[in-house]
């Protein structure tokens, strides 16, 4: 009896520090990423209007406008569609993405002039999305499995210093990623992202993304009104503005089929 008690005490003694005291920075990073994922679960679907302002080194601007639809998929990555409304010559051009937790995403492009739906390669991770400073990789859904993590420290959040952020490094698991690492600032209570620093394959500081004007939708889903991406190597930047967020609009899997892209408006 005594032996068994001692054995139990030893097991407990061994287990407790693992949870409370000896959590490694890697484990803490992964735990926070998982908690962030869970905190936004249950949004079902949302739609929003996007506007991109592309700025070159001289400050010359050009704009893109689009509508976005996103469907939550519980056992895999989310599905999303974007359809451009500006500039006019690409109006109606739409991109459907089935994000996957593992392996390449599936993507279809709809070309309205020809009425043609074209399955396209999603191995284009590093290329610019419609000439902006966002790459395709930056715009895929942030699945936990796409990175390994390392927690660094706590500090006041960028953009909103009155809040406290967890700062962590994350390393893309995809070998075709354009980044060696990212440093992300996540607010402690709500897991809102406030900043991401991107380092290129040569580990050189490449871009910074900051998040602004958060609002809470459907009780618990925080979404930014503005995202600003600055490329430190080229001096170019892109602002992404989001308006008209609507959650739980009743979208279903049947809406996210390649054969329905031509019906988007």
């Amino acid at each position: 009896m005594t032996k068994r008690l001692i054995a139990a005490a030893l097991v407990l003694a061994a287990a407790v520090p693992t949870f409370a005291l000896a959590e490694t920075p890697e484990e803490k990073g992964l735990r926070i990423a998982k908690e962030a994922d869970v905190s936004d679960a249950g949004f079902a679907d949302f739609t929003a209007n996007g506007k991109m302002i592309l700025r070159n080194k001289q400050g010359k601007e050009s704009t893109r406008e689009f509508k976005g639809w996103t469907l939550e998929v519980s056992d895999d990555g989310d599905k999303s569609m974007n359809m451009f409304t500006e500039p006019r010559d690409v109006k109606g051009t739409a991109l459907l993405t089935w994000n996957h937790k593992q392996g390449d995403d599936d993507q279809w492009l709809y070309l309205p002039v020809l009425k043609r739906v074209k399955r396209i390669s999603s191995s284009n991770k590093t290329g610019s999305y419609v000439g902006s400073e966002f790459s395709y990789e930056d715009l895929t859904s942030p699945e936990v499995e796409k990175y390994t993590y390392k927690w660094l420290r706590e500090e006041p959040c960028p953009v909103k210093p009155e809040l406290t952020c967890n700062v962590m490094e994350r390393y893309p698991t995809d070998k075709e990623s354009g980044y060696s690492k990212q440093i992300a600032w996540l607010e402690k209570e709500t897991y809102r992202g406030y900043k991401v620093d991107y380092y290129d394959r040569k580990d050189t500081f490449l871009k910074t993304l900051t998040f602004h004007d958060y609002n809470k939708y459907a009780d618990k889903h925080w979404r930014p009104g503005k995202m600003m991406m600055v490329n430190h190597q080229t001096g170019k930047s892109t602002d992404m503005l989001w308006t008209d967020y609507q959650f739980k609009t009743g979208l279903s899997d049947g809406d996210f089929k390649s054969t329905r892209l031509k019906n988007l408006r």
Partner: peptide, 21 residues
């Protein structure tokens, strides 16, 4: 004119369709 249901749609009139890869 076109009507879009949940996972069906119908269209009547002059339309344009592309098939192929």
């Amino acid at each position: 004119v076109q009507y879009l249901g949940d996972s069906w749609d119908v269209l009547a009139g002059l339309g344009k369709v592309f098939w192929g890869v």
